[in-house]
Design a protein around this nucleic acid. Sequence first.
DNA 1: CTATCCACCTGGCGGC
DNA 2: TGCCGCCAGGTGGATA
Length: 280
Amino acid sequence: MPELPEVETVVRGIAPLIEGRVIAKAQVFNSKLRIEIPEALAKQVKNQKIIKVSRKAKYILIELEEGEFLIIHLGMSGRLRVYPNSENYKRAKHDHLVITLNDSLMVFNDTRRFGLVTLLREDEFADFKFFKKLGLEPLSRKFNSVQLFKITQARNKSIKSVIMDSSIVVGVGNIYASESLFSAGIHPERIASDLSKKEATKLYKAIVDTLERAIEAGGSTLRDYAKPDGKAGYFQHQFLVYDRLDKPCAKCSKSISQIRQNGRSTYFCGHCQSFFFKSR
DNA sequence: CTATCCACCTGGCGGC
DNA sequence: TGCCGCCAGGTGGATA
C-alpha cells in the first residue's frame, strides 16, 4: 500500500478540495472490500458537510459535521481521486465508492479490494478492531530515539520486522523499512535487541528523514498508487535500495541484495549494512 | 513472544 | 498467443 507518505500525500491533496463541501450523494458500487462497506453509509453521509480530513496511521479520516468519520484505508492498491469537475469523470473498473460534492467528485478505486471504507463516530474508535493495536505515529513527539531504543531492547526479532510492526510504530511499510535501514547502515536481519543506543538513534533519524522526504516528493508510485490529482509521486526515483536488486549501491557501488523476510522482499547493501555490531 | 503460513483479490510480467 | 507461476506500498488471524 500506500505507506504513510502516500497516505499523507492523499490527505494533503484532498483536504483543500473537499473540506467545507457538502456531500450531495454517495454511491457504493461494490461493498465487498476488506470489510463490507456498511449498507447505511451512503444514506448517512448524504447532505453532510465535510469538516476536516486527517490521517491516523494509514487510515484517512474524513470528519463530517454530525460527528461521524468516514474512514478509508487504501490497502495495497487503493486510490482516492478527486475530480474538480465532475464532468471529467467516467466510472472505471474497480471504482467502488463515488462521492458527489455538487460540481466535484471523489472516487475510491481499489483493484485488489484490500482497502476498507466505513463510518464511525469518535466514541466507536476505541472498539474498532483496526484501531485497537496501533503503535506510535512516527512523525509525532512520542516517537523518538529513546523510545525506539526502549522498543528495540525488548524485541528478539529482526529489526526490519520491528519497524514494520504497526502495533509498535505505524506507517512504515515494506519500502520505507528497507530504505530507512539502508540510511541507518543497519542490516535488516539484525536482531533488534542487539542494536546499540547509537544505532537506534541513527535508525530513528533515518525513519523520520525517509518518511519526511517521501512526503515532500508526493510519495512513491509503483503500480496502482497515484495522487488525488491522478499524477504520480516522485520518491521512487530516490530509492536507494528498494526494487534495486543487482543495481549499484549509491554509497559503495556494490550490488544491492534481495532477501525474503516474513514473506516480504527486503533490499539492502551487504557492504554498507553490516550484520555485525559496529559502534561507530 | 516469535516465526511462518494463510487469507483476502486482481493483474502484470517473464518463461516456456 | 496462451497458460502458469510468481510477484506486488497491507494486515489480521491461526498455528506451532
